[in-house]
Design a protein around this nucleic acid. Structure first.
Lengths: 132, 132
DNA sequence: ACACTTGTTTAGAATCATTATAAACAGGAT
DNA sequence: ATCCTGTTTATAATGATTCTAAACAAGTGT
């Protein structure tokens, strides 16, 4: 079962709650953006039972650390996550405060010419802010 | 006096406190990154007298709206601002939680091929995360 | 110079996302 | 089944940001 692998890989035991979180995050083909609150709501809707915020934060952060989720760099009062962990970027519509995926092919290769001593590049993320 | 213009342009009256904030933000040739707390400290050091946080937030946000300051899109518990409002990008060193400027010429032109109906691009920002 | 209106500053309270706590509970190895 | 250790939970603590409302200052008109 792939959820169990994801959890074990993230250093987490496969508990009932965590499997339910996985179900919400990873069962659909379509990827999506979410905040912790969005996720809490989705879980409440899907199963008929709430999972405490502490558990949700905990699990999401473990997945993020292992690369099963990505944080989207944006200044907002809430942290946004993405279930799409492939290399890609985002539009951010300032008026609606909505994120839109931007495929890598829509941006073209980004070649960072400068090097920082002793550091390697973990990710390159482009945020395109939109206004009316 | 250019500070007065910046303030008036941002819809703010040039008060003593706001001029002092301007002095800290815009008097040096060298640009810098800061959080609201950093700024509060800098002000305390520069003048011998504190300015209330409400005033600092207020002024910084007005400047940001007018483009005299830029928010740096990054997920952190604090919001980062940049006095460098030219087109440029950032490295973010995950270990030290430090930002480093990345000149446009070190990234090369970024051409966003996809268009969103009725929206125009306000900014394109690249964040390069660094690890050891 | 004075008074008046309206914008500003301030300290402190309120809010809200996130993190910490510690007690009850559950996995899973033996 | 037992035991050890990790997990869940409700709730409290934290900390950045925003709100509030009272004291104050700018700028205008007299």
């Amino acid at each position: 079962m792939k959820y169990i692998d994801k959890l074990r890989n993230s250093g987490l035991r496969p508990t009932k709650q965590r499997l339910q979180i996985c179900e919400v995050l990873f069962s659909t083909e379509k990827t999506f953006h979410f905040t912790i609150n969005d996720l809490e709501q989705k879980i409440k809707n899907k199963i008929n039972n709430k999972i405490s915020l502490a558990t949700i934060y905990n699990t999401v952060h473990a997945f993020e650390k292992k690369g099963y989720l990505k944080q989207i760099p944006i200044n907002s009062n809430q942290t946004y996550f993405d279930t799409n962990v492939t290399d890609h970027h985002h539009f951010y519509d300032l008026k609606n405060e909505k994120l839109i995926d931007l495929e890598n092919s829509d941006v073209g290769p980004i070649n960072i010419k400068r090097k920082i001593n002793g550091k390697k590049i973990k990710s390159v993320e482009v945020l395109v802010k939109l206004e009316d």
